[in-house]
Design a protein around this nucleic acid. Structure first.
Lengths: 273, 273
DNA sequence: CGGTCGTTTGATTACGATCAAACGAAGTGG
DNA sequence: CCACTTCGTTTGATCGTAATCAAACGACCG
């Protein structure tokens, strides 16, 4: 009955990017009842403390999650783009512990969370795919944690730009070597734990070093290798199938030393496994 | 057939702390085949880049996850204690993107990841409980992100101490108003994105302010209300059933303003939902 | 053409890093 | 039982990255 391209196909595409979905399950997913909505930039999808009963599939535009700390500071803890599933975790946990807000104008499809959970229970390949996408999401948070905790402003910003580029590319949103930076400098600061002033200067630095150039909200990558190096960017944590251009052997990850920082006296290591 | 207390009961207890598990499913879980292991402090459970085929239930001791960034710095991205399930996410994603290492001497049970996943597929209440615990884990990362990004050293440390206390209490590990701090000051620094020197001074500050006292690796909470205040600690993000002593109305979370930091011109807010 | 939002730049401050060294506790071997 | 070692904690002095405060500038909009 659905006309040409089903509304939920961006969700399916996102899931299939990380885990195969068999044909019957795909069909069932696309036929899930849903309603379409449009939001202006700044509107909330979920608020901290809310009890979500629907989850949303992001069809177009950008969305961010954030937490507000005691002194009024805001930390952006996640960015979402086309295909991402929002609020599924909140519906499982019962209560949202963060805010989800539209970064740009946004189109989305709302699905009953119960129906979603029930479908996942009956469709193993879908359940797996949703699991994998949720775990990949968590993986992003952990990489951000490492970035904010242990990289300086320059590397942090370079890392975020790399991530945005690769994710947009994977979602079919990046054109060539340019991508959209859907946030202003204050929001960038709140994402990286910096101030907007410092973002401005750091952005400028990346530009004069010849790593990127900007025009309005669009960023062009002038030197991908150098940007990756500056940001210490290794895309494994994104858990996307395709491993980037090439020249990036995954096996090298496995053979890294990894003993850095541990100086316990207990002689034997690796006795387990 | 199982003698007295089944080995996997800490896992079941952890799951039931967040989501009910019905009796048949609980029994099936406890009967999962597994092998028991002991590790010394410093040994690795999983390494970045590994492809785990087993997951581990932590029976005793403490474990931490960490990432190593380009310049050799280490960021600790998670702490685990009795009952926690480790490596399930890694087995789903196929490749570990962080290291999991014993913080103290540790006892654990290893379960075949396939068997675990299959059991979850056949046992709805278990599947739900595992989902919820995984999502709660992700929720912790997000709170840590907010803490490292937007709280100063003093608040960050106070927040971590609050979290450790509440989690140990929930796991039945905290005695009265004292709890174990299973890490040294360098590890605390790597957890909070600070140096060990600064941890030392901040710890001292919390002590002279009368919020805590210490003896060896044990911390006693001298003023819980003040410590929570100092750390901006609101335990919602832990997603534990019990909501702490009392005097903490969850509904107050819902009614907070939450507009802080957003200054978009697009007049209407909250038009959605 | 004023008004608002976002970007850019400058001057100063401060929080936490870094460097360095002494001290204390626990374990080891003579 | 006491040197001796090792690991962790503590303290001091100085440095540097990023915050803060302040203001001008630029772009878009009605």
């Amino acid at each position: 009955m659905l006309a040409k391209l089903p509304s939920l196909s961006p969700l399916l595409a996102m899931l299939e990017r990380r885990s195969p979905v068999d044909e019957r399950d795909a069909k069932a997913l696309l036929e899930l009842p849903h309603s379409l909505h449009a939001l202006a930039a700044g509107q909330y999808l979920f608020r901290d403390g809310a009890k979500p009963e629907q989850c949303h599939v992001l069809l177009d535009g950008y969305v961010f999650r954030h937490k507000v700390v005691g002194d009024g500071g805001r930390q952006i803890i996640g960015l979402h783009m086309r295909g991402d599933l929002l609020g599924f975790q909140g519906s499982l946990l019962g209560t949202m512990d963060n805010n989800v807000q539209a970064l740009t104008a946004v189109r989305l499809a709302a699905i009953d969370a119960e129906a979603m959970a029930e479908l996942a229970q009956r469709r193993p390949s879908l359940a797996k795919a949703i699991w994998v996408s949720a775990m990949a999401d968590a993986s992003l948070s952990r990489e951000w944690l490492a970035s904010i905790g242990r990289r300086d402003a320059h590397a942090r910003l370079a890392h975020l730009l790399c991530e945005l580029f690769v994710r947009q590319e994977a979602a079919g949103l990046a054109a060539g070597d340019s991508f959209e930076l859907p946030m202003n400098q204050e929001q960038l600061g709140d994402t990286l734990g910096l101030t907007s002033v410092h973002i401005n200067r750091t952005l400028r630095a990346l530009e004069v070093e010849g790593l990127i150039s900007r025009r309005r909200r669009s960023v062009r990558i002038e030197d991908w290798a150098a940007l990756k190096r500056a940001g210490d960017f290794r895309p494994t944590y994104l858990h996307l199938q395709e491993e980037e251009p090439a020249a990036h052997a995954t096996s090298s990850e496995t053979s890294r030393p990894l003993f850095a920082g541990w100086r316990s006296g207990s002689g034997k290591k690796l006795a387990f496994g």
